[in-house]
């Protein structure tokens, strides 16, 4: 009997592996192997037909750190993350509160907030081109009405990154809104009543009751916004191409450019590894937080 049970258990284990195998194989091929291969290739020089690539240790990383473009791009991406993450979260929260309030035409309001989410980033960029075009674009038409001179929003270093940031916020705030919306719907209305009886005003209720209850959602949204600040770069291809003079260039766009426009894959690989390191740290932090907050459920 015992023997049979053991046999049965081994059979089940084999079954489990077999079921998971196809997915694991593909995942290894397109996630784990390339991550390791990227690291390996980042240690070699760029080979040419005359000079084959040779082992260079961490030289490529040294080159990156010595390259002023690296610092510009890294700073840009930090600003990009530093603005898009909190601002999208705040917008998302405000949108959710409004989309959850008893106001007329609520479903219109809700879909207006959410619509940008389903558009391709490329299309979103095209839509915004119409806003940013100097002199003739919507923004300059409005500012021109008040006597301001036309501005080349995408073409000057002072405003290019900001213009890109606005499109990202526009695109992702509505997406984050629905997570808050879902969380808000699980909060019992009695809570508000109770707070009111206690004499808490609207602001106090929001700050002392709502925000702490929404904390798990905020963490989730925060991690997603962080990943997006690496990932969402498609609009650069339409709006600025990272210019002028690298003023709006972000890391992933730079990786693409190094690898596929300048054919310098060793340096692109080194940069990729740096990004993966940061994402890995985010992953570890996220898992820790999830473990901590399990008691919420």
């Amino acid at each position: 009997m015992n023997e049979m049970a053991r046999l049965q258990k081994r059979k089940l284990a084999l079954y489990g592996w077999m079921l998971a195998a196809p997915a694991l194989a593909l995942m290894s091929l397109f996630a784990f192997y390339p991550a390791i291969a990227t690291f390996w290739h980042s240690l070699f020089t760029r080979g040419t037909s005359r000079r084959p690539s040779v082992f260079a240790g961490f030289e490529n990383y040294g080159d990156l750190f010595a390259d002023p473009t690296f610092w510009t791009v890294a700073t840009n991406n930090l600003i990009y993350a530093g603005v898009t993450i909190p601002v999208s979260i705040i917008f998302a929260l405000i949108m959710a509160l409004w989309a959850n309030a008893h106001i007329p035409a609520r479903s219109f309001v809700r879909s207006a907030y959410f619509t940008p989410t389903i558009l391709p980033m490329i299309a979103a960029a095209n839509l915004w081109l119409f806003f940013y075009t100097p002199d003739l674009g919507v923004i300059d038409q409005i500012t021109g009405f008040f006597g301001a001179s036309p501005t080349n929003w995408l073409g000057q270093p002072e405003t290019a990154l900001a213009s890109v940031i606005i499109v990202t916020i526009w695109k992702e705030a509505g997406f984050f809104m629905i997570f808050y919306l879902a969380a808000l719907q699980t909060i019992p209305p009695d809570l508000r009543e109770a707070a009111r009886i206690e004499g808490a005003g609207r602001w106090t209720y929001t700050r002392r009751v709502l925000l702490p209850l929404l904390m798990p959602t905020t963490i989730f949204v925060f991690v997603n916004a962080m990943i997006n600040s690496v990932k969402l770069i498609d609009h650069l291809f339409i709006l600025t191409k990272g210019g002028p003079n690298n003023a709006s260039k972000l890391i992933l766009y730079w990786i693409w450019e190094m690898a596929f426009a300048y054919f310098d894959s060793p340096h692109a690989a080194a940069m990729t590894i740096l990004v993966l390191l940061v994402l890995g740290l985010v992953a570890v932090a996220q898992f820790r937080l999830v473990e901590k907050r399990t008691h919420y459920r």
């Binding site: 397109f30 996630a31 390339p34 690496v230 994402l279």
Partner: peptide
């Protein structure tokens, strides 16, 4: 793998 974005591994 949720964090090793396919977008980042474009080169390999």
């Amino acid at each position: 793998q949720l964090f090793i974005l396919p977008e980042v591994l474009i080169v390999e």
